Amino acid sequence: MALLEVRNVTLHFRGLTALADVRFSVEQGSIHAIIGPNGAGKTSMLNCVSGVYRPQRGAILLDGKDVSGLAPSARTRLGVARTFQNIALFKGMTVLDNLLIGRHVHQRTDVLMGGLYWGPGQREEIAERRRVEEVIDFLEIQHVRHQTVGTLAYGLQKRVELARALALEPKLLLLDEPMAGMNAEEKEDMARFILDVNEERGTTVLMIEHDMGVVMDLSHRITVLNFGERIADGTPDEVRAEPAVQAAYLGEPTTSAWGKA
């Protein structure tokens, strides 16, 4: 059963076509990767799914509901969360405060009741902190919960951004190059956490990633874009064997870049 359906999405920026009639579906409970050379339209596609961009043609369905006309905040309330290629955290705030901000869509206490701390406001804050602490434990960042985000190493900041997205309790988690700029050890940790998010929490993941070894190891299905068009869609083995994909990446059919000898 598809959690996300992208139906013939076309996106123009004046004279430039960023996406041309792109279609694919993401199955409930899967890890689905979007790959392609630089400028292929991958982040534009993620921005269409999250609501940052509104395509000129086509439709985006979440759980069977057309969300094409909804703002990003409305899609967040429906269960869409994302991380960014360039870290988008509040660098001057602590890890804990960044995650609590991620709980904003679940808060029900209004301004008046929130001001009465000894009542609904207190109970809600305790419940929100409990959920945030669960995410902190899950991603093993207990030791930095009270540190200012801007003082953390890059790999930890990427993990905190993932934690903030998970604090939203998403149905669909959008990851834009979650391992960009990481060393081998940090990539290994992030790959493990993405698997755990999918397998233990049951979260559906739509991911952009340039590390082909990681993509082939983690993904259940892969969509390949090139110059804004879909050129392949299938399992890792199917995509690896597709001549059009090999040509787009390497200029010739070969399997040496796909994580296998």
Rank of each mutant, 00 (worst) to 15 (best):
F13W: 12
F13G: 06
G15E: 02
R23S: 15
S25F: 04
E27T: 10
G29Y: 11
I31V: 15
G36Q: 04
G36H: 02
P37M: 04
G39A: 03
G41S: 04
S44K: 05
Y53D: 14
Y53E: 12
A59S: 14
A59P: 00
D63E: 15
G64H: 07
G64Y: 12
D66Y: 13
V67T: 08
L78E: 15
I87W: 03
K91G: 13
G92N: 05
V105S: 11
H106V: 06
R108N: 14
T109V: 15
D110V: 06
M113P: 00
M113N: 13
G119I: 03
E125F: 08
I126Q: 13
R129H: 08
R130S: 09
V135S: 02
V135G: 04
F138V: 00
R145K: 15
H146C: 05
Y154T: 06
Y154V: 08
L162W: 06
A165G: 06
P170E: 08
P170Y: 02
K171L: 11
E186N: 04
E188V: 13
D196S: 15
E200S: 12
D211E: 12
H220E: 02
I222S: 00
E229M: 14
E229P: 08
R240Y: 12
A248C: 11
E252R: 15
E252Y: 15
S256G: 00
A257K: 10
